[in-house]
Each structure stands twice: as C-alpha cells, then as structure tokens.
C-alpha cells in the first residue's frame, strides 16, 4: 500500500502542476489589471501552502504501513488554513479619521465558490459514508487492516487502522477550515472600495474551499482505490457476485476523486473567475 499510495500522491502533484499550467495559460477570464494593489495576505497564504507541503512530507514518512499517506492531505490542508488565517489576522483594522462601511450583510455563502463548495460537501459525505462502510467491514484482527472472508482474511483493506486516524485528521482540518472561513467573512473591511475588499474575501474563501477539497478528496481517493482494487482482485473469493461491480464502482470513484483533487489543487494555486473579477 505505501508504494501505491506514494505513487498516487506523486501523480496527484504532477496532475495539479499540469492543471495550474493550463489555468495560467488559458485563464477563464482576463487577468486582473497589473495596477491592482498586491494582496498583503498572499505571502501568508503561500507560506501556509509551503508549510503544509513540508508537514505532509513528514507525515508520509511515518513508518506505519501507509497510515501517514492518508494523513498527508489533512496535514497539508491544515497548513493551508493556518496560512490563510494568519493572512486574514494580519490585515489592518480600520484606522484614520474617516472610516467607511457598506451596509450589505456578509454571508459565508456569498464568498464560497458555488461549484467548489458543492464538490466539497458531496466529497465529505462520500468520504464519511465510505469510511464508515469499510471500517465496519474490516476484520477485528490486525486492527482492521484486512477484510474478513469466510476462508480467511484479505488485505490491505481500509479498515479502522487507516480510517480512524485519517478521519480524525479530516475532522480537525474541517474545523480549522470552518474557523478560517468564518474569519474571512467576519473580519473588518480592510480595503476600499467595498468591491475590492469583497474580491479579497472571495479569493481567501476560494483558497480555503480548495484546501478543504484537497483535504477530503485525497483520503477519499486512497480509501476508494484500496477498497475497489481489493474487491476486484481475483484473490478475493469470499465475495458475492456483486462485489466485482462494487469494486469497479469504488475504483471509478477513486479515480474521479483523484481528478477532482488535482483540480482543487490547481484552484488553490491560481485564482478562479470569481476571485479575479
């Protein structure tokens, strides 16, 4: 499992890099004018991405049979959120003799990109549903690392040994993401006019949403592919006829989650249409 998981992580990085190049060369809209003031939170967001990547590399090296590979994305996500949160906290407070405020009520949903947000919600539900299923079907022997069959056990299986620490890290990451998003929406107006300030909030919200997507989709990829490939394996003779179909469906889900994880990674690195406007 570790070799396969690492190969998938490397492919994910390559896929993300390719999508970043695609988004940079063929942007969805005209790039922002060069005269626009640089976002002071940008350096903190980049620092968060770098720190998250470094922490993910450390997690991958945990010598526990692939556990670290499932922790890599949540750890990376937490680095991204910490950077975004620091960037928001370091924005200036209103100062000066004349202070202005728009009278629009700010809601989180107004800033989160709709497609990315919907994808994160669906992926989170899928991850928890699948992890619950694989955890319940894992054999108690070997800490849930194998699938129980009448004729013995087969592995590796994403049972409790893998899912419990991974889901704990995902929950912690989601909590930090929610806190960061709340700060993005509720922080005082940091730029004038209000439309410029809204653009800063939209980009920060996009970074947090994209980071959440990576955080959720990479473990979903790992769990779905591991379970799907095992169910399709000819060595597994304990299954009913429909297991093969379930294996194919889970493998397809794994590859779909993988592709979306690369897309979310690209959104993390380059602003989308709404955040540029």
């Amino acid at each position: 499992m570790p070799v396969f998981a690492r190969a998938m992580l490397v492919l994910l990085l390559l896929g993300t890099a390719a999508l970043v190049v695609v988004r940079a060369l063929w942007p969805l809209t005209v790039p922002a004018p060069a005269t626009r003031r640089r976002d002071p939170a940008l350096k903190w967001r980049l620092a968060g991405i770098v720190a998250g990547a470094a922490a993910a590399l450390v997690a991958v090296r945990i010598p526990e049979a692939g556990r670290g590979d499932l922790l890599a994305a949540p750890v990376f996500g937490m680095g991204v959120f910490a950077g975004a949160l620091t960037g928001e906290l370091t924005r200036g407070r209103p100062a000066g003799a004349v202070r202005r405020a728009g009278l629009r009520v700010r809601r989180t949903l107004d800033y989160v990109p709709r497609a990315l947000g919907t994808g994160v919600t669906v992926s989170t539900v899928a991850l928890f549903a699948l992890a619950t299923l694989t955890t319940r079907t894992g054999a108690p022997e070997a800490g849930g690392r194998v699938l129980a069959c009448p004729g013995g056990t087969r592995g590796p299986w994403p049972g409790a040994y893998y899912t419990v620490p991974a889901l704990a890290a995902v929950v912690a990451g989601l909590a930090l993401a929610a806190f960061t998003l709340r700060r993005v929406v509720r922080r005082p107006q940091a730029a004038e006019p209000a439309t410029a300030d809204d653009a800063l909030r939209r980009r920060s919200a996009e970074v947090v949403t994209a980071g959440t997507g990576v955080l959720v989709l990479v473990p979903l990829t790992g769990i779905a592919l591991t379970a799907g490939l095992l169910l399709q394996s000819s060595e597994v003779t304990c299954g009913a006829g429909w297991w093969d179909g379930a294996g194919q469906a889970l493998t397809a889900l794994g590859f779909l989650a993988f592709a979306f994880a690369a897309w979310y990674g690209a959104c993390l690195l380059l602003p989308g249409k709404r955040a540029r406007a």
């Binding site: 209103p94 100062a95 202005r100 405020a101 629009r104 009520v105 509720r186 922080r187 005082p188």
Partner: peptide, 11 residues
C-alpha cells in the same frame, strides 16, 4: 448588518 460587522468595519 449585524452589530459586530458594522462596528468592526467602522472601527
């Protein structure tokens, strides 16, 4: 706007 939002924006 909620009190906190308006108060925060106006300092």
């Amino acid at each position: 706007p909620p009190l906190r939002q308006l108060a925060g924006d106006l300092g």
